[in-house]
Computed example of a mutant assay.
Amino acid sequence: MAAVSRLAKLSSISYLRRCLSSAVASESNPPYTSPFLPKPDYNLIHKDPKNGHVQWVFLGCPGVGKGTYASRLCNLLGVPHIATGDLVREELASSGPFSQQLSEIVNQGKLVSDELIVSLLSKRLQAGEAKGESGFILDGFPRTINQAEILEGVTDIDLVVNLKLREDVLLEKCLGRRICSECGGNFNLASINAKGENGNPGISMAPLLPPPQCMSKLFTRSDDTETVVKERLHIYNEKSRPVEEFYRSRGKLLEFDLPGGIPESWPKLLEALNLNDYEEKQSAAA
């Protein structure tokens, strides 16, 4: 069994390498070259990402909003949003070969193994390759140094956006999350007003309420309990923060402190990425 497991892992990594390489490179579309300065900051100026060949990664603690902001940027830039958390949930819902193993891991707030994540990501990339996808924004991968090294051996990541939020706000935000069982929409019932501390300003986040037809159909994710969320944050601090340093040492990390909810944070994030004028042009053209 161990030999079969190793073979499956090597096969998945090999396929991941082929897919990521082909997704961003062809004779007519050469690989997108990293244009970033060694020490990026919020005023970082980089090559125009609007050609659809961005290769970005979103980092941040569980519940910080990686999926929200990554998906918005993907819609803006026209590239696929690949969230490993969604891949895990889809596998859980499908009763596939990994569903039971994943269920036990997720419900305990633990990290999914590299082998399982690479297998799921390979499957997703295969589907995207068949549809002719180009470029990507990864959300939830890599989460460990091992995963980061696998990815680095596969392709050149242009930018890593590290979303940051106070832990007490993160906890409150996670406990307020709800999903509509009918439309699949993500909402948040928490109304957050955290006071400033240690010289940092306070943070206010209005609830993201569902429409009336969804209100009676809301449910809470099984891993959105205080015990599990705290365990996930503990594991992130222990296992994933070194990934931040991995990319910081390579001059590819852009730290972004969320100043509030979407209305406050989205314009600031676009400004940090030099995309604020692009959204205005897209809106005018619509």
Rank of each mutant, 00 (worst) to 15 (best):
L102N: 08
E104M: 03
R178W: 02
D114T: 08
L275M: 09
Y69K: 09
V161F: 01
E197C: 10
A148S: 05
V229I: 14
G96V: 07
P242I: 03
K164S: 09
D223I: 05
R143I: 00
L44E: 13
L87T: 05
G196C: 03
E152W: 00
E104P: 02
I179D: 06
N274Y: 01
Q126M: 11
L16I: 03
Q100A: 15
E226S: 05
A284C: 02
L44T: 15
S95D: 09
K217C: 02
S5K: 15
T84M: 07
H53A: 10
E149D: 12
F98G: 00
L7F: 07
H234R: 15
V79I: 15
S283T: 12
Q282A: 10
Q126N: 12
D86T: 04
S283D: 08
I157T: 04
P31K: 14
P259F: 04
I203E: 03
S21E: 11
Q213E: 15
Y247T: 08
E90A: 15
R17I: 01
N237S: 13
I13N: 01
A2K: 13
L77N: 10
T227V: 10
L218A: 13
N237D: 14
S265F: 01
P259A: 09
L170A: 07
G65W: 02
Q282N: 10
L16N: 10
C183T: 10
L111C: 04
P35I: 00
S119Q: 14
L270V: 04
P38M: 09
N186E: 11
A23W: 05
E271P: 01
L209Y: 04
L233T: 08
P30W: 11
V64L: 09
M205S: 06
F187T: 06
L44C: 14
I137Y: 02
G251E: 08
R232W: 08
E133S: 15
L120E: 03
P242A: 04
L273I: 00
A8G: 07
T68R: 08
R221I: 02
P212C: 00
A93Y: 03
